[in-house]
């Protein structure tokens, strides 16, 4: 069957199936199982109302459990096992032997892993900080001018561009030609114009990490700007007016009056971008594939899984990413619960 047809059929089946499930299960509950009639009408209504939420939640819970909750546990288990082909079995049949922390130990011995850890750490320091700072700057400046919304659209636009597309865009910026040819990458054109020698920027160890980070900063700044701009507009005007009356200069107003009032929003933006950074994969995969000391955890894991075919170490490195995410996870849950009270 043609995939497009299959796609349409899937939509029809998926949507139709969902609607049918929700409708029929509710009908079954009200008409057959606990009809609100007869001698037990009151009790039946109560029972139906106890069950109904779970009918509504059912498909979502199954999907969430199977596609997100179970994999966390399963990855943990796989990270403690070694995958070996079944002796004398079919190709593709594997045994999973418990090996304790051997996968973790093997991973810790690899310089590539520590390189990935170091780079991820640098990404964590640089990208959220720069994105938030640029976003705050853009939000504060654009809120004050008439064509601010158009400007915002332009800065926000990279959000719609895929990481892969962004990688191509920036690879052209970093493009290098031999010294006797005209440079077609803007960075080298400027660099040569200033009297430097053309550089292949993505192969200069340590610095190339920053050239990759710029791509993500470029994408995430728009996100930070949109959220911080809304927060800035939510600041009570009296606080700003009072500061003006007291003779505060514009910079004092911004840093001492406005920024403290949107501190929690800044934290939210910061942590959200941190999560993106921890999972960054496409940019590194497309631009350097971890060569020239630009490896990051997510790409290291992909390498282990699909090149080295080593599920044990692959799972172990996935658990490292999970471990790094956990503090944010706890903080988010804690915040959400506090807000609900």
């Amino acid at each position: 069957m043609h995939p497009a047809l299959q796609g349409l059929l899937t939509i029809a089946l998926g949507v139709g199936g969902c609607v049918a499930y929700f409708y029929l299960s509710n009908q079954f509950l009200d008409r057959v199982l606990f009809p609100p009639r007869g001698p037990n009408a009151g009790r039946n209504i109560n029972r139906a109302n106890m069950i109904r939420p779970w009918l509504f939640l059912g498909p979502a819970l199954i999907a969430l459990g199977l596609y997100l909750a179970y994999p966390v546990v399963e990855t943990l288990r796989l990270s403690l096992t070694e995958r070996v082909p079944v002796p004398g079995g079919q190709p593709g049949e594997y045994d999973y032997n418990f090996v304790g922390f051997a996968n973790y130990a093997q991973m810790m011995d690899e310089p590539k892993f520590w390189e990935a850890m170091r780079n991820n750490f640098m990404w964590l320091l640089v990208v959220p900080a720069l994105s938030t700072a640029f976003g705050l700057l853009a939000a504060q400046l654009t809120d004050r001018i008439r064509w601010g919304n158009a400007a915002k659209s332009m800065i926000f636009m990279p959000m719609a561009i895929s990481f892969v597309g962004a990688s191509v865009i920036w690879k052209l910026v970093y493009d290098a030609r031999p010294i006797d040819q005209e440079q077609i990458g803007i960075l080298n054109a400027l660099w040569v114009g200033l009297g430097g020698e053309p550089q292949t920027w993505l192969t200069v160890p340590l610095w190339n990490n920053f050239f990759l980070m710029i791509v993500l900063v470029w994408i995430q700044t728009g996100f930070a700007m949109v959220i911080l701009s809304a927060a800035l507009r939510g600041i009570p005007e009296e606080t700003v007016e009072a500061a003006i009356v007291d003779g505060a200069n514009p910079f004092q107003i911004f840093f001492k009056i406005k920024v403290p009032q949107i501190k929690t929003t800044i934290m939210v933006v910061w942590t959200t971008i941190t999560l993106v950074v921890l999972k960054v994969f496409d940019i590194v995969f497309a631009m350097t594939n971890g060569q020239w000391q630009t490896q990051v955890l997510a790409n290291y894991m992909f390498d282990k899984l699909f090149r080295a075919n080593d599920w044990g170490v692959g799972s172990a490195s996935a658990m490292v990413i999970m471990l790094l995410v956990t503090p944010i996870l706890v903080w988010n849950v804690w915040n959400a619960r506090r807000e609900m009270r």
């Binding site: 106890m50 939420p53 994999p71 399963e74 999560l275 995410v325 959400a336």
Partner: peptide, 27 residues
């Protein structure tokens, strides 16, 4: 809807929001 365990489920959704995709690949 009112039902026991609702707050817990909401918390679980918030938690799953940040679970990295990478963990789901192999399983």
């Amino acid at each position: 809807m009112e039902f026991p365990g609702r707050a817990l489920l909401i918390a679980a959704v918030v938690a799953l929001l940040v679970v990295p995709l990478q963990l789901a690949l192999i399983p």
